[in-house]
Amino acid sequence: MSKQLIKARGLHKHYSISEGFLQSSKNLKALSGVGFDLYEGQTLAVVGESGCGKSTLARLLTTIEEPTSGQLSIDGIDMGSVQSKAITKQLRQTVQMVFQDPFGSLNPRQKVGDILQEPLLINTSLSATERKQKALEMMSLVGLRDEHFHRYPHMFSGGQRQRIAIARALILKPKVVVLDEPVSALDVSIQAQVINLLVDLQKELGLAYVFISHDLSIVRHIADEVLVMYLGKPVEQGPGDVIFNDPKHPYTQALLSATPSTNIKNKRQRIKLTGELPSPIDPPNGCAFNPRCQHANKSCTISEPVMDTFGKSQVACFALDEGRI
């Protein structure tokens, strides 16, 4: 059994939103009750529409923000009990992040070499030549050439910029990389290049990925475990092949059927999702998905479903509990 790197149990993150001087502040539940395990060399995909709390989860995992409640341990150390700053700093190096937009996440005034050396400058006591050496090694690992060292980000195409961002994330030798929609800003052909690079790096370095995406065709390709979220709550969780071949939750089914396919011969019957994600400040009563769900009945609007085990996956749905689907 490979080593467990992240253990999350019942993570909650609430933000308090003030709507003006005289109004009382409201609670925005960005994340409620998310839990998962991540092992070495594994990919966990987090799937959902925008506003479902995917990026909040990424902020918690990279310890940019602290959870309101719940337990999060990284590399065997419980984040809640850590007191010393040195350990926090070390844990932050263990989890690194690649952002969605390679045009916005690289400083346009820094050269590639400086971008890559900065994490080393802050976190290690290596000499200038050692830092440069490391940066060059990392550049060749992600498929950039040595002469790119003195260039600025604007001189690169989108795919190459994403390579720079990946190199920056890997330079501190993290064990977990959080990829927040790493390819959604790229063309299909370039997307394939970056995905291949990520797969290769995972094999070579034994990295664990948290892959955040709304593109299910890529998730299906890359994920070992899938976590489907809706309005901050997990609705279905399980091994990738189980979720894709036999989706249980009505939301997962709808997401899968909304994904366009090149298979023109057998067009599937599409499950239509009407409307959009409700506001997390004022979520609907009961199951958050009930206003858009075709299987919803009265019990769905009264109380919230909890995750139950169905076969190999876990699903939170009353219709499934009661055998209506």
Binding site: E49, S50, H214, D215, L216, A254, L255, A258, T259, P260, R270, K272, L273, T274, E276
Partner: peptide, 10 residues
């Protein structure tokens, strides 16, 4: 998003 994409294309 994919769900909205499907709605708009439709």
């Amino acid at each position: 998003d994919v769900t909205i994409q499907a709605q708009i294309l439709e």
